[in-house]
């Protein structure tokens, strides 16, 4: 049984509240597009100026790890969608299952990332002034790794936050707080999670597949 949700008094109906919350999340995602977007602009500028360096430097990234993470995130988006639809249909047990799966897949992403970063540190492929790798000789190469670490790092922070939100959803779902009458937080966290996937969908080819 879902616990009854009372909509806030300044909204005329529960539906108004839902639509307002949903649109609020879209406006928030607009801000995320612009924030990550700034990094993509920096990427675009430097890639346009130093295309050969980008091509050389990207060879030092682990494409298989990047591709694995892409698949992991796509799978986690699938499980997230299924968690939302399960909640919408009132199937609490399935919703919990899919939320747990999403969380675990996100954890997978972090583990792969850990290995990737560790390898970079080991090779001295560090950002900017700390770059000490001997193989990659282009003087601008440190910039590539600055962009790499800042972009994937900021993305990783968003993954971490997402995991926290999914865990929060898990708790509330287990307590029966969501169902067909009220599933707003599940849907909105879902949007956030899909957005995190969206950013990676662009990060992967732009950083790992510089042809």
């Amino acid at each position: 049984m879902t616990t009854t949700h009372h909509h806030a008094h300044h909204f005329a109906s529960a539906n108004d509240e839902f639509e307002a919350a949903k649109q609020g999340m879209w406006v928030f995602l607009v801000t995320e597009v612009l924030m990550f977007g700034g990094l993509f602009v920096a990427y675009g500028i430097f890639r346009g100026l130093y295309p050969d360096m980008f091509h050389e430097a990207h060879k030092f990234l682990a494409v298989n790890m990047g591709a694995t993470n892409t698949l992991v995130l796509i799978l986690s988006s699938i499980t997230m969608v299924l968690a939302v639809t399960a909640t919408q249909r009132g199937r609490r047990d399935r919703a919990v299952l899919f939320l747990v799966l999403t969380f675990l897949l996100a954890g997978c992403f972090l583990v792969v990332k850990y290995f990737e970063y560790a390898h970079k540190f080991h090779e001295g492929l560090l950002p900017g002034g700390y770059f000490v790798n001997q193989e990659l000789k282009d003087p601008k190469a440190p910039l590539f790794f600055s962009l790499y670490f800042v972009m994937t790092g900021l993305h990783m922070v968003h993954v971490l936050v997402g995991m926290g939100l999914i865990a929060w959803l898990f708790r509330r779902t287990a307590r029966g707080e969501f169902g067909p009458q009220y599933y707003t937080p599940v849907e909105l966290v879902g949007f956030y999670w899909h957005f995190v996937d969206l950013v990676w969908i662009y990060l992967f080819p732009l950083l790992y597949l510089v042809g």
Binding site: N15, V81, T85, Q88, G90, D93, G179
Partner: peptide, 24 residues
């Protein structure tokens, strides 16, 4: 846990993505 049908009348855009489409 029984399946409850979502009430649709006053609820506007509460589209539920079908599992087939999601997996597809």
């Amino acid at each position: 846990m029984e399946t409850q049908k979502p009430a649709q009348e006053s609820h506007g855009h509460h589209h539920i993505l079908s599992t087939e489409v999601a997996l597809g």
